[in-house]
Design a protein around this nucleic acid. Sequence first.
RNA 1: CGGGGUGUAGCGCAGUGGCUAGCGCGCCACGUUCGGGACGUGGAGGUCGGUGGUUCGAAUCCACUCACCCCGACCA
Length: 567
Amino acid sequence: MRITKLVTRTLRDDPPEAETASHRLMLRAGLIQQVAAGVYAYLPLAWRALLKIEQIVREEMDAAGSQELRMPALQPLELWEQTGRAAAFGDNMFSLEDRRGRPLALAPTHEEVVTNIVKGNVQSYRDLPVILYQMQTKFRDEPRPRAGLVRVREFTMKDAYSFDADDAGLDNSYQAMAQAYRNVFRRCSIPVVMAEADSGAIGGKDSHEFLLPTGAGEDTIITCPGCGYAANAEKAEGLYPVQETPEPLPLEAVSTPGVKTIAGLAEFLGVPESQTLKAVFYAADGEVVFVTIRGDLEVNEVKLKNALHCNDLRLADDDEVAAAGLVAGSASAIGITGLRRIADPSISGGGNFVVGANQADTHYRNANYPRDFDADLIADIALAQPGQRCVRCETALESTRGVEVGHIFKLGTFFSEALGANYLDADGRQQPVTMGCYGIGVSRVLAAAIEQNHDDNGIIFPPPIAPYQVYLVGLNMSDAGVAEAAGDLYDRLWAAGIETLFDDREDAAAGVKFNDADLIGLPLRLVVSPRNLRQGMVEARRRTAPDAAMIALDDVVDAARAMLAVP
RNA sequence: CGGGGUGUAGCGCAGUGGCUAGCGCGCCACGUUCGGGACGUGGAGGUCGGUGGUUCGAAUCCACUCACCCCGACCA
């Protein structure tokens, strides 16, 4: 491709709206163009890179025994109502009506459709296992798109679905997919962490995310340097110090004027925060629930959502709190009626806690569970935090941010039961198939690869996903000798199968071309110029190398191939 | 959805009630340049996000509205 024909322009300056490196560089290098919030056009350079990423994914999926198919993005909403996921996705699902007023959805994922396909094509245990996958455009009406291709509303996803006879089969499929994922991300130069993850409201047992650790990420990963434990903070568990249970003392009201926070309460009464209990109120699908946890811990809203089996969870607003008869700042589980009460197990270790009294400016000392208050549900709802200890090896946990590029789930039989995808086992009995699902955000992989592989001058494309392998610069293209030699070299490179982008601009200064070469970040830069030509040479520099090498004009194609082969 | 911000030429911005709305980059023509973002001369390009209002007069003031960005709750 000749630059003079390429529909892309590079930007001299950083776009002001772009905060993260990948967003900034993709805009500057002319890879993407925004069409709406969270909706981007992939310009030719990005598209070539995406096709390469897709091909890598395809090769690894095929090698893992999966077969590619293609399902529709446009689906009847009714299908989503059969599994209850229309409600679970809620406003995150784009929906529309056809001309007859029939409700349709733009699919955010494909479990329903793929399960129906398997239902119609798999009858016997002899047909299992099966793994199907597709490259597909997904639509999700995200509340807040951000960071270029990191979080968008229309994106390319590779989604795969496994169907097995039982849990042992699912384990095999899951392991095969996990290995395929490691291969994909290694080939794309994205050093991922595989972390335990929340499986969501529907999800079954195990779930893992593949995350690129980077400050630009949206997820928090809790890791253990001792044993290698890694988990999304949504899922992670941590050990916190548990006090000995003291002799229970009588409940005692104490005046606490103006005290509204745990920190203020602990300071006012001269007790550690771990000697207090925190009360938080949430609206779970509109129902106000009362949540109690030890004062020094934080509520993990994902764990809470799972414990409550609700679709929508948010902090209750002031009106809801007041309507429920709660006194913010001095609320307590003591004497609460008419509300569901959820408590973290941390309330049962230790004792003689300071709690609210449901009266303004008043708290109780010496509250003890279950003597003084009760809960309808005790569940782990604590947010793991760095500094807490690993549940396996008791090393202090660490925390880092990450971009999620892949996610795998063991789904179990939720979908097959809801949609009647059964098979006949060897004993002639009907059984629901056991499913897993596996997603890679293909367009996000491109963003992550750039986030990981760049410097101050621009992108450093990993060769396997670079849109072209060579950036060929013709310096002083109005010089007939240069134009001829560079054009000839361009033809020879393509003839040798080396994908080359040819900067054939006549009017651009050397500096412009070099800066664009660095910005776009192809693996190898070749320079044909009057100066080099007088010596019969071409200059070659890898994007990652500090210095250039001089290559005889006749040897350039072989030399380029050799330089590109070096990992 | 809560909080903060921005909409003026392809891109980045200036313009607080007054004449023909400016600047830089980019673009077109010609000429000079030619190894890390050159220079000269001449040009093209604008419903000032939209609607309504105030006013002799609105990019500028008011109301409503739309879009987009950033920070938080969601996901690949």
